[in-house]
Design a protein around this nucleic acid. Structure first.
Length: 300
DNA sequence: CACCCGATCGTCT
DNA sequence: GACGATCGGGTGC
């Protein structure tokens, strides 16, 4: 079925040139070539210019792969290299929160590009987008996954801390502390090393996990990621990601426009989340026959 | 590893 | 009043 969105969908995305060194703030020296990204710290330069975001989301999305999102808090700084994103084209996209027009929740998406649109979902999770297109037109790129490149210990604390564990003493790290820090060192072969590596890979694998690792919540809705003084900011590619190293496919878990391939990821990277089609939630089983009232007396 | 299910609440119909 | 741009734990192969 054609699906109303079809007509509004732009032509196939054509791999275009990556941002130049000048645009991205990269030093002229080369970073490692494309391919799965090895664990460990990555450089973090000046923020991307606002113009970078003043384009359609489906164009910005692949260009964000390899860029570094960093959040500074009193707990310390955590940075992730973006490995997976999804474009949401506002009014032209039935899957976008902005499809039905501007509301209090989606207001930021209609504002200046280069700001964070943070939303709360499923009663417990936050997800972060970066706003695209000029002010007045809504569109955004959802950051779905990343590799923690700085502050792995802080990220692990946020992800695995036993909720407000006053009872628990040491916290999640338990023995040995931040295993993630060791993982990148030299224990890749050992059982402990594999465990630490597996956990490190899961730190920011998925949009809500990424937000949790970075400590992002609704308080950062509207934050300017292009402002060098912002606690939340994004810098240019820490690593060259060529068009050949980028794969694309349908977006994860969307109930509408599910066939549009606006999800982009770094091919072969272990931190990319798994694809899952939308699953309509079974309606809560409502009691067909009212629970027996005791003694026929109706309470309430 | 694939599939199923419960949690939990802001947002929009 | 229903539905998520999700996650983690449990079951079963």
């Amino acid at each position: 079925m054609g699906g109303g969105l079809t007509a509004a969908v732009p032509p196939e995305w054509v791999p275009g040139p990556r941002p130049s060194g000048a645009l991205s703030g990269l030093p002229s020296g080369g970073w490692p070539a494309a391919g799965p990204v090895p664990p460990g710290p990555v450089p973090s330069g000046p923020p991307l210019p606002r113009d970078f975001f003043a384009r359609p989301a489906q164009e910005v999305a692949p260009a964000l792969l390899g860029c570094v999102l960093r959040h500074e808090t009193p707990d310390g700084a955590v940075a992730v290299m973006v490995t997976e994103v999804e474009a949401y084209a506002g009014a032209a996209d039935a899957a976008s929160h902005a499809f039905r027009g501007r509301t209090a929740r989606t207001a930021v998406m209609f504002g200046e590009p280069g700001h964070a649109y943070v939303y709360f979902t499923y009663g417990m999770h936050f997800c972060v987008n970066l706003v695209c297109l000029p002010e007045g037109t809504a569109s955004a790129v959802l950051l779905r996954a990343g590799r923690v490149a700085e502050g792995a210990a802080v990220a692990a604390e946020r992800r695995y801390a036993t909720g407000g564990g006053p009872a628990g003493k040491g916290g999640p790290a338990g023995k040995g502390g931040p295993a993630a820090e060791r993982a990148s060192a030299g224990e890749a072969g050992s059982a402990a090393g594999r465990l630490a590596g597996a956990r490190e890979r899961e730190l920011a694998r998925g949009p809500a996990r990424l937000c949790q690792a970075l400590g992002i919540d609704r308080g950062l809705d509207g934050a300017d990621v292009c402002d060098p003084d912002s606690p939340l900011r994004i810098s240019g590619p820490a690593r060259a990601v060529t068009a050949a190293g980028i794969h694309r496919g349908p977006r994860v878990g969307v109930s509408r426009a599910a066939e549009i391939p606006w999800r982009f990821w770094i091919a072969g990277d272990p931190t990319v989340s798994a694809y899952r089609a939308h699953v309509p939630r079974r309606a809560a089983a409502k009691a067909v026959s009212a629970p027996a009232t005791d003694g026929g007396t109706i309470h309430r």
